[in-house]
């Protein structure tokens, strides 16, 4: 009897050990890829950012120490008005796009929350923009906003005389066109996520509120919105993160121009990477952004976690 139990125990232990091993093996490829794409490049980036290295110098990157300039890139960055201009524009675009997308998405979600004939098909149609390749959307809007294009044509119909606005050549209008394209493409995402949230608000709670005499508006602000808080935060976070990276549509529509009128952080980095080729400086900018984003994300995650604990 004793021997019997001990055999079972050893078998169990062996199986447990094997299981832990299997877990490690299963996660290994992903761990390696993370190291490959995060740890190694960041160290490399740190090294290059402390030098004046450029691929044009004719020396390999590991010999970049020959061009050591310590923190010169970082001090340059602090004084780089074109960079700070790009930062400002990135946040300006975000400050307009994200709230507009949120409000439009929420409004649409409210209209879609209960069933009506044709709901399913209209829902699918509304999701189309989100799935169009962003670069293709960029070309689409590039065509639409040509001076001989359909946007002007439609405006002509409304005002009654031929309109020939050169949208993408005017600094303000170009920014407007870019914002329109972003709203067109990403409102569906807000709609999709917020609708999922709205549908998840328990119906009996809303009925209970109605039976207590609450109007639709009161119900919306006291029951529906508070219940959707987590989902709203998720939706906004996704759009803020993605909008911060804005590049494809914008770059294709305006190239960051006219001048630097629509130059965002991503476009600016792209330009100095591909055109100026000052990679030591690019590495410094990139690393600075990574550090700031990491700090912000850690802070945000802690904030959300502490709030969740409180409630």
């Amino acid at each position: 009897m004793t021997t019997h139990t001990s055999t079972i125990e050893t078998v169990d232990k062996k199986a447990g050990g094997r299981e832990a091993n299997l877990g490690l093996w299963l996660t290994l490829p992903t761990q390696l890829l993370v190291v490959f794409i995060a740890v190694f490049p960041i160290l490399m980036q740190l090294y290059i950012s402390l030098t004046d290295w450029s691929p044009l110098d004719g020396i390999q990157w590991w010999r970049a120490w020959e061009l050591w300039n310590t923190f010169a890139n970082y001090t340059d960055l602090a004084a780089d008005s074109q960079f700070w201009g790009a930062v400002g524009r990135t946040f300006l675009i975000m400050a307009i796009c994200v709230p507009v997308e949120f409000l439009l998405g929420l409004g649409l979600a409210i209209l879609f929350v209960d069933n009506f004939p044709g709901r399913k098909i209209l829902y699918s149609v509304l999701l189309v923009p989100m799935m169009v390749v962003p670069a293709v959307a960029g070309y689409m809007f590039y065509m639409l906003f040509q001076s001989g294009g359909p946007v002007n044509d439609l405006l002509s119909i409304f005002v009654g005389y031929p309109v020939r606005i050169a949208w993408l050549s005017d600094p303000t209008l170009a920014l407007f066109a870019i914002i329109v394209a972003d709203i067109w493409q990403w409102t569906p995402l807000m709609f999709l996520v917020l609708l999922a949230g709205l549908v998840g608000v328990p119906e009996d709670q809303q009925q209970a509120a109605t039976l207590l005499g609450a109007s639709w508006t009161r119900r919306f602000f006291t029951i529906v919105l508070p219940r959707m808080k987590a989902i709203i935060i998720i939706a906004l976070a996704i759009r803020v993160i993605e909008n911060f990276k804005i590049f494809d549509t914008l770059f294709i529509m305006t190239n960051g121009g006219p001048g630097v009128a629509t130059e965002t952080i991503s476009v600016y980095i792209y330009k100095i990477t591909q055109q100026d080729l000052i990679w030591g400086y690019v590495a410094a900018i990139a690393l600075a952004i990574l550090i700031v984003l990491s700090l912000v994300s850690v802070f945000a995650i802690k904030l959300i976690a502490s709030k969740e604990q409180a409630s």
């Binding site: 009996d204 709670q205 009925q207 209970a208 109605t210 039976l211």
Partner: peptide, 14 residues
Amino acid sequence: MARRGVGFVFQNYA
């Protein structure tokens, strides 16, 4: 329903 003066206790209390 808002004006019927009905008190309703839901299955899971809502």
